[in-house]
């Protein structure tokens, strides 16, 4: 072998060599994961190890017969739709607002990072303190000035749903707002100048220039939020634990309960796989939409 050829062969192996440490870690992660997928086809129950056997799709079929699964699926999807609409809508409003000439804009922008970057479970605990359902809770006290309440935040089904939604929105609204603000600041100025010459109103410019140009970013922000809302866990765990009466039990919490409260590993994994498929499906559809929207704006 000539030295040159040997060198070329080394070059061919080099990328794999460079990736070797990460691939070892990847294998270490994928091994338990694939074992987990296998368990979803078995009757693995930690308390009854002797009953372990391969049951094909029994876990998946039994899920769809479970009344709670139906409700958890409904809550998962309903929560996701509500959270995405609320957060993208308000995020757009905040981004448009901060894009204007606002006193103290830089300070507001920096402060908005704080809810975004602190641990979600800590956010949940902060709001748990504020949403105490007695009159000692500050939120109910403030609402009383508006003639509202007192709301039984975590004790009533709708109160619990609302509180999880509010807490999730407080933590993630800045994410959407910052993406959209960045996009707004990078928009081309020519269309606006042309529209101004034509005497277009600000509302018309928003409707016919800003929103179409912004649409890929709206969809992308919505995709990220949908992915996370489908599997929201920390906030629910720290506040309602899925209650009251399972009103805030989503697929993630339900899978957790199956696996770690009742030790039904097989059923818990089947739930996890269903949730994973749901996340992949929704992200795939939204990313396709995003692709189409970005192609349209480039044209």
């Amino acid at each position: 072998m000539t030295p040159k050829r040997r060198r070329r062969r080394q070059e061919a192996f080099l990328p794999y060599l460079l990736m070797a440490p990460a691939l070892v870690l990847l294998a270490g992660i994928l091994y338990p994961f694939s074992v987990g997928i296998y368990y979803s086809f078995t009757s693995y129950w930690l308390q009854y190890p002797k009953r372990f056997r391969f049951v094909w799709f029994d876990n998946y079929i039994s899920l769809f017969e479970e009344a709670l699964f139906d409700r958890a699926l409904q809550f998962t999807l309903g929560f996701t739709v509500a959270a995405v609409i609320l957060q993208v809508g308000l995020g757009l409003a905040v981004a448009l607002f901060l894009h204007g000439r606002i006193p103290g804009r830089a300070v507001l922008r920096a402060l908005m990072l704080l809810p975004l970057m602190i641990p979600p479970v800590i956010t949940a605990l902060m709001w748990k303190i504020m949403m105490a359902s007695t009159n000692a809770g500050i939120i109910n006290y403030l609402l009383s000035f508006l003639g509202l309440g007192p709301v039984n935040w975590f004790g009533s089904p709708w109160g619990a749903i609302a509180s999880v939604l509010i807490i999730d929105t407080w933590g993630n609204l800045p994410f959407v707002a910052l993406i959209l603000l960045g996009a707004l600041q990078a928009l081309p100025t020519e269309p606006y100048e042309a529209a101004r010459v034509d005497g277009a109103s600000p509302a018309a410019m928003l409707r016919y220039i800003t929103l179409p140009l912004l649409s890929p970013f709206l969809i992308l922000a919505g995709t990220f939020r949908a992915m996370d809302s489908l599997r929201v866990f920390d906030v629910i765990y720290a506040t309602t634990m899925g209650g009251p009466n399972d009103a805030t039990t989503n697929l993630h919490i339900m899978a957790y309960q199956f696996a770690f409260q009742w030790y039904q590993i097989g059923k818990g994994m089947a739930q996890a796989v269903v949730l994973l498929i749901l996340v992949v499906l929704v992200s795939y559809l939204l990313l396709r939409l995003w692709n189409r929207a970005s192609e349209r704006t480039v044209q």
Partner: peptide
Amino acid sequence: ALAFTFMSFRFVPFIAFVIPLYLV
């Protein structure tokens, strides 16, 4: 394929990783 594999972790609900990890 490798780049995508690493990216794809972003889609997995943590419970799907944590149940088998707990057992292992």
